[in-house]
Design a protein around this nucleic acid. Sequence first.
DNA 1: TAATTTGTTTAAAATAATTTTAACGTTTCG
DNA 2: CGAAACGTTAAAATTATTTTAAACAAATTA
Lengths: 188, 188
Amino acid sequence: MSNSSDQEARESLDNAKELVIDSIAETMDLYGVTRSAGTLYGTMYLEGDMTLDEMREKLGMSKPSMSTGVKKLQEFNVVKKTFRKGKRKQTYIAEKDFFQFFSNFFTQKWEREAKVNLHSIKDAQSTLTQIINEDNVSEEVKEDARETFQVMENSKRYYQWLNKLVETIETGEIFDLIPLDSKDEDRQ
Amino acid sequence: MSNSSDQEARESLDNAKELVIDSIAETMDLYGVTRSAGTLYGTMYLEGDMTLDEMREKLGMSKPSMSTGVKKLQEFNVVKKTFRKGKRKQTYIAEKDFFQFFSNFFTQKWEREAKVNLHSIKDAQSTLTQIINEDNVSEEVKEDARETFQVMENSKRYYQWLNKLVETIETGEIFDLIPLDSKDEDRQ
DNA sequence: TAATTTGTTTAAAATAATTTTAACGTTTCG
DNA sequence: CGAAACGTTAAAATTATTTTAAACAAATTA
């Protein structure tokens, strides 16, 4: 069956999908994911697993563009390669569980944040300690060094907490602490 | 006092600060904050409240650049205007509590994510329902509409949970659930 | 009130990023 | 094999963003 009313319905359906895809792209943009990568994810989310050529056709973009887009999404841990039996082409599948998306996406970034900053704090504090213990350094500079040391020292607590948050999410414990809703459903 | 050793010490001190400022900028970049805005925040974080001219001098950039940078950071709720008594110039102060930073920054984004997506889902589902109830629409299209409706319906739970998470953070309850102080969290 | 300072807006320039075309190396399959 | 298909890389082209200089408006002060 494929009359004019069916045609219209298909268009409406596509519009409905695009509405949500755009929203997903817009909100992913908030976290530094480019609009096109967000659109790509949204499309895969609603259309299921796709090949690069299917993406290209759907988004009207070049294949290398799809390739790099998919790669970026893989780096964020929200897209994976899959196999579609009988097909030669590689297919890619989007993480369809937003809780898993949240977990994969944010824990990766938070872990990196903690690691990078704790590392630089370590190095910086080492330098500051030297200054503080040095002779022939004005009290003014020493005081600045002491204050700076303390500010950095205080910030460590945050990064430690961040690591703890990450663990809570990775283990799924977060969903015990902040339940999904009345209907409990085991997650992860 | 200001001999050569003191000069060196000041340079070391600035280097130590810049090391951490760069890390802060790099990690803020993960969340879509531009490098220069991140550097600006990091500088204010370690140097205390500053005027636009002080920022300009410190970062070696133009004043309009500082103005827009500060404005962006204000939008993220991590910088505020302050007054420095006796001074005519406006000063700006960075949120120095990273927990508060985390709270201000992410809750704003998560709230927006939930709002924007729930809204588009509502509109999309309305369209999908029409298609499903329409006569003269092929079963194939209807089935797609039904499946899409269900995928969207399922995703609502996530956004509801996100709103719940936001509330837990805004009320500070999150720090009861995931306490700050725990011995060694040295994951690095 | 006139001159100065401050902060913002605007338009242009500079810079950065995304995207595409073209080319390359692999793999698949007849 | 050899041809075709696939995915990636490299470069060039295009777009978008960031930055600045210049102009402006508001506030201050002398």
